[in-house]
Write a protein that binds this DNA or RNA. Structure first.
Length: 154
DNA sequence: GCCAACGTTGGC
DNA sequence: GCCAACGTTGGC
């Protein structure tokens, strides 16, 4: 069992929108960074815990808990020729990008980025490193426990 | 809107 | 293979 932090722009997909989706599950498409892709392709397992993070918005922070709900599969959006995620170099025979399904588990209070920065034990989180932009990053079990404990404390 | 940081592209 | 230019991310 591993843990992850996955960023979503709430204008695209908020945590509430995830919980409102059929089976509280959506395909995670549009990742166009190789490191993030490789995490999905090589390391994620069904049942892994996910911190659902709202980025590029007024209140960036962790908005809920989710889980990985499928094995990796080709990201359909890479083949949609007129879509914003189209990749002309990808073919169904040789896909470049993958998706996994993500299922919402439970909404939490919004745990703001500024608060995360102040919590002891989270200093090593990639999210908090200067210049870090990766949309999918691993979370250690210790970091996960600290964050979940903090969410339950108030 | 600004801008620092980063990843990708493409000429050489 | 180098590296400058460019585009994107994402907090503020």
């Amino acid at each position: 069992m591993q843990y992850w932090l996955m960023k979503s722009e709430p204008d695209e997909l908020s945590f509430d929108a995830l919980m409102a989706a059929p089976a509280r599950t959506v395909p995670w498409f549009g990742v166009r960074n190789y490191q993030a892709r490789n995490f999905m392709r090589d390391a994620m397992r069904v049942g892994d815990g996910v911190l659902f993070y709202h980025s590029s918005c007024a209140q960036p922070g962790v908005a809920g808990l989710a889980e990985v709900a499928s094995a990796p599969y080709p990201d359909h959006s890479q083949f949609e020729a007129d879509g914003k995620y189209a990749d002309p170099k990808a073919t169904p025979e040789q896909p470049r990008w993958v998706s996994v399904d993500v299922r919402g588990v439970r909404r939490t209070r919004l745990l703001p980025l500024a608060e995360l920065r102040g919590i002891a034990g989270l200093e090593e989180m990639p999210l908090l490193q200067k210049g870090s932009r990766l949309s999918i990053t691993p979370v250690t079990p210790a970091q996960w426990q600290i964050i979940v404990a903090r969410l339950e404390a108030r």
